[in-house]
Simulated assay, not measured.
Amino acid sequence: MARRKKVYEGKAKILYEGPEPGTYVQYFKDDATAFNAEKRETIEGKGVLNNRLSEHFMTGLQSIGVPTHFIRRLNMREQLIRQVEMIPLEVIVRNYAAGSMSKRLGLKEGEALPRPIVEFCLKDDALGDPLVTEEHIAAFGWATQQDMDDMIALALRVNDFLSGMMLGVGIRLIDFKIEIGRVWEDDYARLVVADEISPDSCRLWDVETDRKLDKDVFRHDLGDLADAYSEVARRFGLMPKQSFTSGPKLVH
Rank of each mutant, 00 (worst) to 15 (best):
A97I: 11
D224L: 14
K11M: 01
L154N: 05
Y96N: 01
K11W: 10
A153W: 07
E9G: 11
A32Q: 09
G164I: 04
L156W: 04
I64R: 02
N36D: 15
M86E: 02
E111V: 10
L122M: 04
L204W: 01
R82H: 10
V251T: 11
L74Q: 11
P240E: 05
A34Q: 01
I117H: 11
D160Q: 14
A155V: 08
P248R: 09
P21C: 08
G247I: 05
F120Q: 04
K123H: 11
E109N: 02
G168T: 06
K212N: 06
E85M: 01
D31C: 03
S243N: 06
L89F: 02
A112P: 15
S246K: 14
C202E: 08
Q146C: 03
Y16K: 06
D224F: 12
H56A: 00
K215S: 04
V193R: 09
T23V: 13
A153R: 15
S230T: 08
R211K: 14
A153C: 13
K39G: 02
F236Y: 00
F120I: 02
A153D: 14
G168D: 08
L156T: 00
L213R: 01
Q26C: 14
G110M: 01
I117R: 13
K241G: 01
T59N: 01
E111C: 00
T68V: 01
L204G: 13
C121D: 01
E208S: 11
Y96L: 08
Y8I: 02
I81Y: 07
P130L: 07
A226L: 09
R235V: 02
I137T: 05
L191T: 00
K6L: 12
R3V: 14
D30F: 07
A98Y: 00
A12S: 03
R219Y: 04
E185N: 15
M165Y: 04
M86F: 00
V66G: 06
G141V: 11
S230P: 04
Q79M: 06
V132P: 10
I174G: 01
Q145L: 15
A32R: 07
A228K: 05
Y229C: 05
G141T: 02
G106E: 08
E111W: 12
G141N: 04
R40E: 08
E55S: 09
N36A: 11
Y27H: 12
A37L: 09
Y96C: 05
I92K: 07
L122E: 02
